[in-house]
Design a protein around this nucleic acid. Structure first.
Length: 827
DNA sequence: TAGTTACGGATTTTT
DNA sequence: TCCGTAACTA
């Protein structure tokens, strides 16, 4: 599966790509057409070389959006219009961020890792790690994922005796997340009902609980960052001055808060709410309103219109040239989406011919539909389609079952997207919970997860008792253990002691050794060894050790966690004619710039685990048919695509048929599905379908009536869509063929690093090295630090710019120090 | 404390 | 139907 075939740039050629760099003042616009620029079409070239200022790019499906974004950054850098430190490029997924960095580093010898390219949450995390004190967080705050958040809320509701019939925890979670997406604190939420009042109260209590425990959820990462920028003039002005070029990917998917965050970084809002962009900033928003399919999680297409208005955008560019599909496919997509009223307006075109017609099939049952599909896939394989270039798309996950069964019985290899990701697996979460307790003993969510796992005789009773004590004293569960009487107290004390000993023992150990020790001492390994069905879980735990190892050696641990590389920041400011010694930089802004104190590798790894849940499937290399929801297919493309279950009530979904807005989103979803196909597109629907244990009768989707008849070829006679019902196919249960466990997260680090330019020093080698690092420190050495005084080196990790040392100081305790920043002199 | 049963919910998903 | 969670029982 290539996520970006037609999008791909020609193989990066050698430098120079852009002809002569600009003069230092960045004004000389005498750009020589370079091989890379000249391979862009007119629209793309215009977008890449946009002058200073704010702009909106409407990038149609398959129009080379990512290529434009990355080439734009490369162009800005290579023409000297901005330094790497002055660029902020933000995306939604780690995958997209990684893609951007990979492509950029293929174009320019730039240290992409040091640049602010990442996801909204990843960048906010980086920001908060740098300014934890100002943000009111503990230095090693932990990140709650959605599961953790839900269990925290459940715990809270139990504690305050909230009726979970009337206020389901899920709903409370939804309420809180929604409020944060809108940038609202409990006090800001308007109560429209008695129930609202209760939810606001819960929100308030939840916040207090998180703060007490030193944890933040995903929404909090964004909201805290936003608030710090809003409330601290020095911080805001600093970053505003720094980020001269802000680029936003998938802008149509931004929520209110994300847009507000962008505005904080690039302008001022006055008391009347009027926004004025900062004069020296350039914001480039790239998106496609026709592909906005995430309203349900807060995406707000309206941000596009607001952006144009509030930034007084003078330049809008449409990328309408499609490099992916034949015109029968594009005509279908264009015709369909033209039925949406609320659009910015855009029409895809291609130079390729019409290609094959879109094939339409009507089946009598979901079972028959799957059978037909299996047959077609066999034909495709005979016609030399690769299996991995064939995708089966559906509206909801439940539909995969029949399809899987049919494929399984036919012996066709397949792979299902979705499901649990590596870091979400129970055994992994258990292991991580132990690790988190080492970093932060007040993390009650982690505490509760493992206090009795593996079972050690600490039952619900004991825990209740402990919770009462903790609540009465307003402290964490861990803290409340001391002084608890009876057998419960003894058991719990033993547990606490165990964790304390573990924490002591891990000092001076490498991340890998820490995890191995934890797996062993916690009893997790033993527990799964004793379990007949624990083999997979054991394997995953072993994989966790590997993941940690690659995190340290390859990924460059702390990429997400470390704040600004201070040297680079200084240099960047100097190059902009700003005196780097100004207080605004040194004081509140870069607290660890003084001491070089940094996150421990463990804390960095935990952050990584929370922000990047990992892939959900192994065997990515296998040639297998791809099964996924339409949502999951966004951004991907395939030679052949099946869109299945095109029935009223299913696609469009029944919950989204009543109002125009959500129906239009369903249509956009269909638009996304159609535009995934390169050569061949199938659409199918069925008269009957098993749903929730009942046979349902469906009409064919209204979307068929919105497609151009001349682009379609009906494999079955086009009829009413209501046929005589066939006896429902008895679907047999079958084990998934492609189902598998295992971690295949992206640790295949590959960063060429610097190879030129007079900027930072060369970072770590791409290949893990065991050779002696250059800093000349060794474990056991006595060293001196300006702030912390004399100490002993306990451990060393990483190489080059990533090198860090764990040092035990007399008065200041154990600290992790980044050697590129901290001045450590051997005594 | 584990193993069983009963119940409810049931688009879409990343961080 | 079929999954996960919560309550119940041995």
């Amino acid at each position: 599966m290539s996520s970006s075939g037609s999008d791909a740039a020609p193989p990066a050629s050698s430098l120079p790509l852009f002809g002569e760099p600009f003069t230092a003042d960045g004004t000389a616009a005498t750009l020589q057409p370079s091989p890379l620029l000249s391979s862009l079409n007119g629209e793309q070239l215009a977008a890449v070389t946009l002058p200073q200022g704010h702009a909106l790019i409407l990038a149609g499906a398959g129009s080379g959006k990512t290529r434009v974004l990355t080439t734009r950054i490369a162009w800005l850098l290579s023409t000297g219009q901005v330094s790497p430190g002055g660029v902020l490029a933000v995306t939604f997924t780690n995958k997209a961020a990684k893609e951007m960095m990979t492509r950029l580093s293929a174009m320019l010898p730039v240290n992409v890792r040091g640049m602010w390219i990442g996801t909204f949450h990843g960048l906010c995390n980086r920001f908060l790690r740098a300014h934890w004190k100002l943000a009111g967080l503990p230095q090693s705050f932990q990140i709650l994922d959605t599961q953790d958040q839900l269990s925290a809320i459940k715990r809270l509701m139990k504690q305050f005796n909230v009726d979970d019939e009337r206020f389901p925890a899920k709903q409370t979670q939804w309420f809180i997340a929604g409020a944060k997406e809108d940038g609202l604190r409990p006090g800001d939420v308007e109560a429209r009902s008695e129930d609202d009042r209760k939810k606001i109260e819960l929100y308030q209590l939840y916040e207090e609980q998180c703060q007490r425990e030193g944890v933040v959820d995903f929404g909090e990462l964004m909201l805290r960052s936003y608030e710090l920028l809003r409330d601290n003039d020095a911080v805001r002005e600093h970053y505003q001055r720094r980020f001269r070029h802000i680029l936003i990917d998938e802008f149509q998917d931004t929520n209110r808060l994300q847009y507000a965050w962008i505005k904080m970084l690039s302008g001022q809002t006055d008391a009347q709410g009027r926004f004025t962009p900062a004069p020296h900033s350039s914001v480039l928003a790239v998106g496609d309103d026709d592909q906005s399919i995430y309203a349900f999680r807060g995406a707000r297409v309206g941000n596009m219109q607001d952006f144009v208005r509030e930034y007084d955008v003078q330049r809008q560019i449409k990328l309408e040239q499609n490099y992916r599909s034949y015109s029968n496919i594009l005509d279908s997509a264009n015709a369909l989406i033209s039925h949406n009223k609320k659009r910015l307006g855009k029409n895809l075109r291609t130079d390729q011919g019409p290609g094959e017609p879109v094939r339409v099939n009507e089946a009598t049952s979901d079972f028959a539909e799957a059978q037909w599909m299996v047959e077609e896939i066999r034909h495709l394989v005979r016609e030399d389609f690769e299996r991995k270039e064939v995708a089966v798309l559906y509206r909801s996950n439940a539909q995969s079952r029949v399809i899987e069964t049919a494929l399984f019985n036919a012996g066709v290899p397949y792979r299902v997207y979705g499901g649990l990701r590596f870091f979400e697996r129970a055994e992994i979460k258990h292991a991580l919970a132990y690790l988190r307790l080492l970093e932060n003993k007040d993390d009650d969510t982690s505490f509760l997860r493992v206090v009795n796992f593996p079972p050690r005789g600490i039952g619900a009773r004991s825990i209740e008792q402990l919770q009462d004590a903790a609540r009465a004293r307003g402290i964490s569960l861990y803290g409340a253990i001391a002084g608890l009487p009876g057998k419960a107290g003894a058991n719990l004390s033993a547990f606490a002691a165990r964790i304390d000993v573990l924490r002591e023992q891990t000092q001076g150990l490498s991340l890998k050794e820490i995890i191995e020790l934890v797996l062993d001492t916690s009893g997790l390994e033993e527990h799964y060894k004793a379990d007949r069905e624990g083999a997979d879980r054991l394997e995953n735990l072993a994989e966790l050790v590997n993941a940690a190892e690659s995190f340290v050696t390859q990924e460059g641990f702390g990429r997400d966690a470390v704040a600004l590389p201070v040297d680079e920041l200084r240099q960047s400011l100097a190059s902009q004619g700003i005196d780097p010694s100004r207080a605004v930089l040194d004081e509140p802004l870069a607290p660890d710039a003084e001491t070089g104190e940094t996150l421990s590798p463990l804390a960095a790894f935990l952050t990584h685990a929370a922000l990047e849940a990992g892939d959900n499937q192994a065997q990515a290399g296998q040639d297998a048919v791809q099964l996924m929801t339409v949502h999951a297919a966004k951004g991907l493309e395939f030679d052949a695509v099946f869109i299945t279950g095109l029935e009223e009530g299913l696609f469009p979904h029944e919950n989204s048929m009543s109002d125009v807005e959500s129906l239009e989103e369903e249509r956009r979803l269909m638009y996304v599905a159609i535009t995934r196909a390169r050569r061949r597109l199938y659409m199918s629907f069925s008269q009957t379908r098993m749903l929730h244990g009942q046979t349902r009768y469906h009409l064919r989707s209204r979307f068929f009536d919105e497609l151009p008849e001349e682009a379609l070829k009906w494999l079955t006679p086009k009829q009413s869509g209501f046929g005589q019902f066939a006896p429902g196919g008895a679907a047999r249960a079958g084990a998934g063929y492609g189902a598998s466990s295992g971690y295949s997260g992206g640790y295949g680090g590959r960063n060429p690093g610097w190879s030129g330019g007079g900027q930072a020093a060369a970072p770590s080698a791409p290949v893990p090295r065991k050779s002696e690092p250059s800093h000349g420190l060794r474990v056991g050495m006595q060293v001196f630090h300006n702030k912390f005084g004399e100490g002993a080196v306990l451990a060393l990790e990483g190489t080059g710019d990533d090198a860090r040392a764990q040092v035990k100081f007399g008065r200041h305790g154990v600290k992790w120090l980044a050697l590129s920043v901290a001045k450590l002199t051997p005594v």
